[in-house]
């Protein structure tokens, strides 16, 4: 009985974790020493001597751009973040349906061949209610806005634009 309860809990935790990935890490390529800032002008990374910086961003809200300041310039140059759309709606729904189906099956088989008693009844109720709660949790997060937020990824490689900008009639050298 206890194993079945642990299975149900593990399943619900897995569903919760799958639906709560809120950050993403990608690489920004540029000149070593370039400081990367977010749209609130907060410094978040420095490009290392290999010409790369690992950036971890919240996926919500969507960041249209970051800023890059070369070591020999006082100008912060915006560069846009490229992205790719996916459709993650269907797998999530299937997880919910699967979770509900598995929980129902556990609840039903738990009672088979055994007299109907309080522990079996509790397992059944926990399984069904837990699965429905997971389903409702994900489905209530499935508004159009949240679909969009869930369905994009920043591309794994992004580039700065400092090579194109002239500052005070002097081209920014990198």
């Amino acid at each position: 009985m206890k194993k079945q309860i642990f299975k149900i809990i593990a399943l619900l935790l897995t569903i919760a974790m799958l639906s709560s990935c809120s950050t993403q890490t990608f690489i920004v390529h540029g000149t070593p020493g370039t400081v990367i800032s977010n749209s609130n002008n907060e410094d978040i990374a420095v490009i290392d001597k290999t010409g790369q910086a690992n950036i971890t961003l919240e996926r919500k809200p969507y960041s249209h751009y970051l800023l890059a300041k070369s070591p020999n310039s006082d100008v912060k140059v915006p560069f846009a973040l490229d992205y790719k759309n996916h459709n993650r709606n269907l797998p999530n729904s299937l997880i919910c349906v699967g979770a509900a189906a598995i929980s129902l099956a556990i609840a039903v088989t738990a009672g088979q061949g055994e007299p109907m008693n309080i522990p079996n009844l509790v397992i059944g109720i926990v399984g069904v209610v837990g699965s429905y709660m997971a389903f409702i949790k994900i489905m209530t997060n499935s508004g159009r806005e949240n679909d969009v937020y869930r369905n994009y990824d920043y591309l794994p490689n992004q580039t700065t634009n400092n090579d194109l900008i002239i500052n005070n009639n002097t081209k920014i050298t990198e």
Partner: peptide, 20 residues
């Protein structure tokens, strides 16, 4: 779709004093 920085780079290419 999704290649936003290419669009931004075309702006900088045309007007490279954009941030001045």
């Amino acid at each position: 779709t999704g290649k936003v920085n290419d669009a931004l780079r075309r702006i900088y290419t045309y007007k490279n004093d954009a941030l001045s």
